[in-house]
Simulated assay, not measured.
Amino acid sequence: MNNETYVVTTKIATLGPAGTFSELAARDFSKRFESSDVLFYPTLRRTIDALDQGAEIAVVPIENIVEGIVAPVVDRFVRRPLQIIAEVAIPVRFSVVMNHPEPQRLFAQFVAQGQCSEWLAGHASDVVTTASNTEALALLLASNEPAAALIPEHLLTNENAGSQHYAKVVHDVTDVAHNVTRFVALQAAQPLALPNHATAYKSAVVIVDDADHPGLLLEHLQAFAVHQVNLLSLVSRPTGQKFGQYHFFIEFEGHLQHSQVQAALSAIKLRNRVIELGSYAYSSSNSSCN
């Protein structure tokens, strides 16, 4: 008799390359599984589409506390059935590393530039935009000229980055000291599990703009208010059909199977199509918009 025990490895897709904040989020989420493998993809779209190519989970950024919602992720919710099963909040900290005390240029990923704009405005005159944070570091390490790189703080503990002798390191140059990016774990849509009464849930939906009329948004807000469903976020996204038409991505407290949530959504479904994206545990530190 064969008594061997087989461990199933969960494949988790995330935005690459290695060393990104997305990898940190994916590694954090992977702790839920006995065995997992993190797979890297070059774009958010390909990361989500990996769910059709063998990955069980996709971990992608959905919101940054400074720059707001990640539009390509929210827009994918309208185009294909997806389910949010968890969220992970990752602190965002950047440092500048230099191979010379007076660098002539600085390598920085385009999103990182936006999150460290104040420091860059006062210290860097020649900024070279890179596709990723790890590319910025690689260009610095390969440079024979005085240069610097804007990199995530956690890369300083990376085997390749941390072992380098830098002429100067400037820690925590992020514009907002408490900068955080929220990531969500996605899977292909499937029947929703029953709520655990010991868990505080948040849920997400997309209200599809296929019946536009005056007072549409007000009707939606009133439906949530009447049934005492507390909103956590509301973001409009253009439908791409014509000016003035928008879908609404909404997160709120409660489970999709809670009676007051079902009542509010039933009222909205009388006029618009609603895509239910799932219910998942959330941190009480999330701010309310009600």
Rank of each mutant, 00 (worst) to 15 (best):
P42D: 09
A147Y: 03
T5S: 13
E135F: 04
L216W: 11
N2A: 09
N179F: 01
G162T: 10
V74D: 01
A55L: 00
I12P: 09
G215N: 10
S125W: 05
A185K: 11
Y282W: 11
S30V: 09
L277F: 03
E56M: 09
H178S: 14
S284W: 00
P214L: 07
T199L: 13
P103I: 07
N2W: 03
S125F: 08
S125Q: 15
V274D: 01
N230H: 05
G215Q: 04
F29D: 02
Q257P: 03
F94D: 07
H255Y: 06
A263Y: 01
E118D: 14
G254E: 07
V180I: 14
T20L: 07
I84V: 15
I268W: 05
A55G: 06
Q222C: 02
H213I: 02
L156T: 13
Y201A: 06
A281C: 08
N196Y: 01
A108Q: 09
F110S: 14
P103T: 12
A131S: 14
S233N: 08
G244K: 03
H100W: 04
H165I: 15
N230Q: 12
Q113H: 09
G54K: 12
Y246M: 02
M98Q: 14
N230C: 02
L186P: 09
I84R: 03
V111W: 07
V205I: 15
I250H: 01
Q53A: 12
V261P: 02
V261K: 05
D75K: 11
A211R: 15
H258V: 00
A147M: 03
E135W: 05
